[in-house]
Write a protein that binds this DNA or RNA. Structure first.
Lengths: 199, 199
DNA sequence: TGCCCTTCTTAACCTACTTCAAGGTACTGA
DNA sequence: TCAGTACCTTGAAGTAGGTTAAGAAGGGCA
């Protein structure tokens, strides 16, 4: 009876109460994996076989463009899910990379096992649907901000949206997330703090 | 028994077979609405009360930024769904506008009625989940292309992804969708066709 | 047929952001 | 304690894409 799995069960039980049978399935189906800082858990060109629930640590998901530049798409910390849904659900190879940047523990589940869990507890379906919806809404907001606003206000948005993770994120990762170079990000920050001091 | 609703039922039955009872609910719950070219079916600041299935015609969804510039996020043609999921599901006001740009007929459903339909036919849940997933994957791809590539290759991607709709879309709408001004889009096109002629 | 109105294109100039290069700062480990 | 390395900042020069303004090219309609 792993204490690790209990963290996932507690997380799920915030939304629905899980029958003992489902809890058992979760303990069987979710595999505990550990990663060291720097390690990749998914590489471009592979199939994404696992959906991952982060117990502790931190991950970033990024693409590498034709000039070998990295672009961060998403981060994941405690109690977040991370994986490439496109590759996971559609059995295609991924364009994404996922790298651990703080030593981490995750619980990983295959597609078959995830379906097994959802079948055993239909209430979880609505939870997962909601997670999906939220994640879709977040990516919609992301598109809006990439299309409709400049770097300065994307930086402001980031500060407002993720204040609690700022200190765990290297500047270069944030720069890449909001879509500018580290050099320009440096200037953005300076400008921003000068302005907010003035007002 | 509206022939209009039959189009929706046919569309759904490509994936799941619907019991007569569910078909009846669909006929009752989906409201037929008609729009003329130019008309708005959703305005920034309103609540998105309806999820809309497009029978015929064409729509675009866009935001207006602080400089009153429009940015197209998505289009919708026959047999597509359109609405703002964030506003629809979370009962918040929307930042989006949806405008008809070819005379159109849609079937609209409220959140309560959509839930009623899903309850009556649980198989539809997985269909809707899949639609969500696809729509999430599409927006993910959109972020990837906005972040990871320049305007020229976003234009190429658009040509490859939506060849069948090109002739129904004014250049300025495509320009806005890929995230450039109409003027710059003009240059892109010229450059693209010169290159492809040369090779 | 011709006119108005919207859309598209072209060109000159402008700016937000990138690139490149250099120096500063701060962990990390022997 | 010191060196090595990764990270952050600064500045100068370059570029992708925006702005403005004007003309060209359709397309609906009298």
């Amino acid at each position: 009876m792993s204490i690790k799995h209990q963290q996932l069960i507690n997380y799920l039980e915030c939304a629905v109460s899980l029958p003992e049978e489902t809890q058992e399935i979760i303990r069987e189906c979710f595999m505990l994996r550990r990663f060291k800082k720097g390690q990749y858990i998914l590489n471009e060109g592979e199939f994404c076989r696992y959906n991952n629930f982060v117990l502790q640590g931190a991950f970033r998901m990024f693409i590498v463009d034709e000039n070998f530049k990295e672009h961060n798409l998403q981060f994941a910390f405690n109690n977040w899910w991370i994986g490439d849904p496109k590759s996971f659900f559609n059995d295609v190879t991924t364009r994404l990379n996922i790298q651990c940047f703080e030593n981490a523990e995750v619980l990983s589940v295959t597609k078959a096992n995830q379906e097994k869990m959802l079948e055993s507890c239909p209430e979880l379906n609505s939870l997962f649907r909601e997670k999906f919806r939220n994640s879709m809404i977040r990516s919609y907001d992301r598109i809006l901000s990439l299309i409709g606003s400049n770097a300065q206000s994307r930086y402001k948005d980031f500060l407002e949206t993720y204040p609690q993770y700022l200190h765990r994120l290297p500047n270069q990762y944030i720069a890449s997330y909001i879509g500018v170079t580290p050099e320009f990000f440096s200037k953005l920050k300076k400008e921003y703090w000068q302005q907010s001091k003035a007002s």
